[in-house]
Each structure stands twice: as C-alpha cells, then as structure tokens.
C-alpha cells in the first residue's frame, strides 16, 4: 500500500468535515475561503468574516477534527486566542486530548443540559483559575488530570525526580506541580533566552582598572 502523506490525509479529512459542517451550519460556514484574511497577531492563522481566528481551511482548528465543539458556544475572543491557539500548537491537539478530557462535559451533547450532564467529580477544580483554587487542591488537579495519561512522569514526579522541589532536602519542601512549569494548554516547555556565555580565557583580562 502506498502510504498517504499526512498532509494530504489531513486535507482530505478537513474537506470531508467541511462538507459535513457546511451541511449542518449552512449560514455559518457558507463563505468562500477567499474571504479569510491572514491574522496579524497570530502568524499562520486567519481571521474569518466573524472575526474569529481560524486555520487555513476556515476551521476552528483541530477541535473540530476531533469533533470537540465546545468552543462554538464558549467562544470568547481573548480566551480563545490565548488558550485554544496554544492548544492547537501542542501535541495534545494531535493526540485527541480535547477540552472535555480535562474540563469535563460532553461536547456531543445536544443541548447545554446534556453537554454538562457528565460525571466529572473535579469539574469545579479544573474550571477554577489557579490562583483562586484552594492550595491543597492543586496537587490533586495535577494527579487527576496530567497523571491519568503521563503515568511514568507522574510516578517520577511523586518521587521528586521529574519536576522541581525547593526548600529543604531533609525537611519541608515545596512540590512544584505540573502546571507551575507547564502551560496546560501547550505543555511543551517553552524556549528561554539563555544567560550570557562565559568569557573565553583568551579574552579574560581585568575590565576595570584598580581605583585605589
């Protein structure tokens, strides 16, 4: 079998989905692709006539690829650009880790009642901003949500090997939970600006003259 290039496959899938969606929401998705304007703030993305940030197919990113449509109702421009675009770049988006996997809810629900009528005990936890969360609930959130997939990392973390501990090596420590280092919507550690390189021995000389 000749392998189909991923890009082609994805385009085909998009096209299929686009047709499907165009049928279900004719008014929203009837526009031609020409009407997409490249986004200034988010390189690689486009703005549709409604002012939404979309990908080159006019789709709200992979959420729809994975049939996770929460964002259709929960669209808030700021949040969307900050969180969903981040998520779209992450490995999570490729691996079907969609909104409801962490936030709970049922995106396939026909109405609000159905969408939220799911047994997710920590529904409240994960939907509360970090700084408003009770302190002892933070680790729980980490265990519950990241740990359910990242088992080995989670185990290493609980023994202090993955991630960071500060304080006392023989006493009270601060345990840095996942989201203190990883952005949950784009968990890959972001690049940093390095501190200056050392001065090579050939250039090492007194910079200041003795002022005594």
């Amino acid at each position: 079998m000749v392998p189909i290039p991923a890009r082609v496959a994805r385009s085909a899938l998009y096209a299929a989905l686009a047709c499907l969606l165009a049928l279900s929401f004719p008014s929203a998705w009837g526009q031609d692709e020409e009407e997409l304007v490249p986004s200034k703030d988010h390189p690689g993305y486009f703005v549709n006539p409604d002012g939404e940030i979309v990908d080159e197919f006019g789709l709200l990113l992979r959420l729809f690829e994975h049939e996770s449509v929460c964002v259709r109702c929960h669209y808030e421009k700021e949040k969307y650009e900050k969180l969903v675009l981040d998520w779209d770049k992450s490995k999570h988006s490729k691996n079907k880790v969609t909104c409801e996997k962490c936030h709970g809810g049922n995106p396939k629900g026909a109405n609000v009642g159905e969408a939220k009528n799911v047994e997710t005990t920590n529904f409240q936890v994960i939907n509360t901003p970090l700084d408003k969360l009770e302190k002892d609930l933070v680790p729980q959130a980490a265990f519950k949500y990241c740990g359910q997939c990242h088992g080995i990392k989670f185990r290493d973390w609980s023994f202090g090997i993955h991630g960071k501990r500060t304080g006392y090596w023989n006493g009270e420590k601060e345990y840095w939970v996942c989201i203190l280092c990883h952005n949950p919507h784009n968990p890959k550690f972001q690049k940093l600006e390095p501190k200056p390189a050392p001065i090579p021995p050939s250039k090492l000389a007194l910079r200041k003259k003795d002022e005594k």
Partner: peptide, 14 residues
Amino acid sequence: EGKYPACAEICPVG
C-alpha cells in the same frame, strides 16, 4: 542547614 543548593533551586526545568 538542610537547604537545596542554589543551582537546584533556580533550575527552571527541575
């Protein structure tokens, strides 16, 4: 005195 070394405390990736 029981504290972690400064380099371990600062490391952003743990």
